[in-house]
Design a protein around this nucleic acid. Structure first.
Lengths: 116, 116
DNA sequence: TCCATATTTCCGTGAATATGGAAATATGGA
DNA sequence: TCCATATTTCCATATTCACGGAAATATGGA
């Protein structure tokens, strides 16, 4: 991950509404959540939500797919993991024990879809 | 970690200069780096550096100690780990394998001081 | 006390961001 | 084609942020 991407991602997450949205999507898993449901859950005006979804999307932290009239948004786990890796990348210079970057394994996440 | 703390930390890191400073400190390890040396390394005017160090400090991401006339800044690994944990906290709801938050172990970092 | 060094605080300016109502756009069904 | 639903884009306003020169503050040594 390049520095500019990390900054963009961090900036996207450094805002209450977006952090809420992102975490909601992280919880939701790969199945995602329709924009309308996000708006309802977080009590956000559609224009406001749309603005923030766009920020997260541009930051590469979320993706979306259309399903009929709804746009389903989902967390981009690879991007999140990349960001965390970037943040810890130079930690523990020698890089031996005590320095890992394991986070969310999307393969495992797929199995949590039963929640929907 | 509370939401407001996570936002503050993310906002502090979502800025090129501060991200550079933070990573520099993360690399430096527990021994830290004097403000003047940070300024020189990153070619920053003292006022600008001071401003950003203050942001990072307020965010709890770095700490400092005085050593004679110098202020030695160092990464607050616990805060960084806390932030990463917060970000991944609700990921993999069931929370089994594939979802970990291992990052920087300060105990290990202490042993890298030989680099200075 | 007096000086040199190290760092912070003050302050005005230019730029970027968050907000949300209203209108516009996209999709599906009959 | 026509309507209803779902979401986005447009826009103006208020707020917050980054910058860096200059002056102020803090520490140590003689």
């Amino acid at each position: 991950m390049e520095k500019i991407d990390a900054i963009t991602a961090l900036a996207a997450l450094a805002q209450e509404t977006r952090l809420d949205v992102f975490r909601l999507l992280v919880q939701a898993g790969a199945k995602g959540v329709p924009a309308g449901q996000i708006a309802e859950t977080l009590s956000l005006p559609s224009a406001t939500l749309s603005f923030h979804l766009n920020q997260l999307k541009n930051a590469g932290l979320i993706n979306f797919r259309r399903e009929s009239r709804s746009l389903i948004y989902a967390a981009e786990y690879a991007a999140m993991n990349g960001l965390l890796a970037y943040l810890t990348e130079n930690c523990c210079q020698g890089g031996k024990a005590g320095c890992g970057t394991v986070v969310c394994d999307t393969a495992v996440l797929g199995k949590t879809e039963e929640a929907g």
